[in-house]
Each structure stands twice: as C-alpha cells, then as structure tokens.
Amino acid sequence: MPFKNGTHSWDDLRLFLAVASEGGLANAVSRSGVSAPTLSRRISHLENTFSMILFDRHPGGVTLTPQGRELLEKVQQMDLHNQAIHSWRTRQDPRPLVRVTVGYWTSIYLTRNLDRLFTSAQSPRIELLSGSQFLNLSRREADIAIHNKQPDQQGLKRHRIGPVTFAIFGSPTYCTSHPQSYSEERYAACDWVIPSQSGATGGSSSWLRRKIGETARLVCDTPQAVLEAAAAGGGLCILPCFIGVNESRLVQVSDPLASLPHEQWLVTHENSSALPHVRHTANAIATLMKQQQVGIDTAN
C-alpha cells in the first residue's frame, strides 16, 4: 500500500519494521522478501531521510537506538492500520456495482431474467432500486433509469426501448368458470383484483377504477399481491403484457388495451454512460426489454 509523506514511503517503513522485529538484516530477508544488501541500502536511506541513526550495528546484528524505538512504536501502529485496510479490501467484491432505478413491474421482469443480465462471472453487480419514485441520475443517486416518459433534464442520454402495452389476465380456472372474462361483459360480471391507491404503479390502475368503480373483490397494497391473487383464482387483473404473457399461471383474456400503451426509455447520465460497466449493463437491459416486446408480439 503506497503511503508517501514527504520523502519517506510506507515501503521503507515496512522494511524498517521487518529489520527491527527480526533483530538483523539476515533474519529479515525471508520476512520482507528483499535481499540483505537491499535492506541495508533502504535502511540507510531511511536514516538519511530522518537525519538520525535508527540502528546500532554490531557483529551479532542490530539494536534499535532510542529514536529507533520511538519510530518502531509509530510504525507498528501504522502496520495495524495497514492490515485492517488489507483485510477490509479483501472482503470487497472486485466487480463494479451498477445502481438501476426502475418501476415495479420492470424490476420483476429483470429479476426473472437475471441469467440474461449476468452473462459471465465478471458481469457487474446490480443494485435494483424499484418503486414509483425514480432516483435522480444528475445527483448520482443511480446510474441507469428506465422511465415511462422521455426525461427533459440536461446532461442525460436517452435511449428509446419501445412501447409497453397492457391487457387483462386471469387464472385459467377462473376464466373457464367465468366465460364473460373474454368479453366486454367482464367489467360488470367478473371479480376484480386491483392495487390500492398507494400501491398503484401507473395510469392503468386509474383506468381500471373508472371502468369498474368501487366493485373490486380484492384490493392489494402491492402489485405483486395483485398478481398472486389473480393467479390463485381471485379474479381478473390488469398487467403489463411483458409480465402477464410470461406468467404461466395466467391467461390473457383481452387484446392489448388501446388507451394505455406508453413508451419506455432507458436513461443514463452522460458521465456515467462512459464507464464500461454502466454501458455494459445498460446495453444488456435495453436488449432484454426489446426482446420481451418481440416475445409479446409472437404470443399475440
């Protein structure tokens, strides 16, 4: 660990510690990994730097002078800090971290497709920050964001991913026992599972409330609970197609709802986007999100 202070360095002090601890140059060779002539030269250089004699030389080895003993106490403290730093560093993951802020359903989709984001052991680590409140890239609260509308802040790079569509889904058992699920009668004749006002993820929840009023069979405070309840046969729900189409426990009972699609944008700060690990992760997410659109088109 380089540690320079004026004209002396931690490397010289480390060698001083080895010689002082071993009581001589010969004994310090194996501990320091440096030859005896080199040790002698470096110790002399350190003494010249401090303008003081640190060791008394004699045929049996060396002994510390009073100034050398004082220095040894300080260097031993430095060595303890150095060991602590080394121990801390070895516990850190060498792979860089990329912070990604996304909406709830996008976070679900990304976690279900981790093998397509982590393509190798050297892939960057990801901290997924989901929720309706997106973090500020300009303040470096995150490195990558996926937005439902094009941001207009300065200093951001924007990449259009494509449209997100929504449809009505229910469990096969429920839809078989409620054939109205496949027609416009569904809004009045079927049971519904909806998110609460606080758990809503976007305009689709408001749209559905306008269609069914306050008649929902079940109101859930998280989007995941809505999905689970619908999959368990609790009623119909509205989902982004990239979630519903890929959920084996659900069937799609409507065409994509024409009034709800919106564009999806991948956003990075222009400074962060120059970092290889951020660029790699952004490209992987953009590719994955575009591929899910192809899958939805094929399914429908």
Rank of each mutant, 00 (worst) to 15 (best):
A188M: 08
P124W: 05
G162V: 09
A188W: 02
R116K: 14
H86F: 06
V29S: 08
G24E: 09
A167F: 02
L137C: 07
H262A: 05
N113V: 10
M289L: 15
M1G: 09
T298M: 11
L208Y: 00
G23E: 08
Q293T: 05
R31E: 10
A216Y: 02
S51K: 13
I146A: 00
L71T: 10
S120Q: 04
G203R: 13
L236W: 01
A18E: 08
E73K: 13
C241A: 10
S30E: 13
A274C: 06
P151E: 02
A225Y: 01
S51Q: 14
L218A: 03
L97F: 04
G295K: 07
D143H: 15
I53T: 14
F16R: 02
T106V: 14
N48F: 01
S21G: 11
V193R: 11
V19E: 05
G203C: 02
T90W: 04
H81A: 14
G33P: 00
R209G: 09
H280E: 15
I85V: 14
W265E: 09
S130C: 07
S30A: 12
N148L: 05
G244R: 07
D93S: 14
A28M: 08
A231C: 13
S205L: 03
K290F: 00
Y109T: 06
A18V: 07
S259E: 14
Q83V: 05
Q264G: 04
N283E: 15
S132R: 15
L64E: 11
R249Y: 05
P37E: 07
L128G: 10
H269Q: 11
V253H: 05
V226P: 00
T165H: 11
R112S: 12
S21M: 07
S35D: 11
R249M: 03
A216N: 11
P195T: 14
T101N: 08
G6I: 04
L39E: 01
T119F: 03
D191L: 08
P96S: 09
L39I: 06
N148T: 11
G213W: 08
A84N: 10
F242W: 06
Q154E: 14
S177M: 07
L72P: 04
T298A: 13
H178S: 00
F16I: 05
Q252C: 14
G199C: 09
C190H: 01
K4E: 08
N136I: 04
P261W: 05
A121G: 04
C237T: 15
V219W: 06
I146T: 09
V98W: 01
P96M: 08
G33D: 09
Y174N: 01
K211N: 01
A286I: 11
A282Y: 11
A142L: 05
N283K: 13
S32D: 07
L13S: 03
N5F: 12
C241W: 00
P66S: 12
V19I: 14
I144L: 03
E214S: 13
L46E: 10
P223A: 13
S9W: 05
N113Y: 03
V219Q: 12
V226F: 04
P94Q: 10
Q122E: 12
T65Q: 03
V75T: 12
H178Y: 00
P223I: 02
N148Y: 06
H159A: 07
S204L: 08
L257D: 00
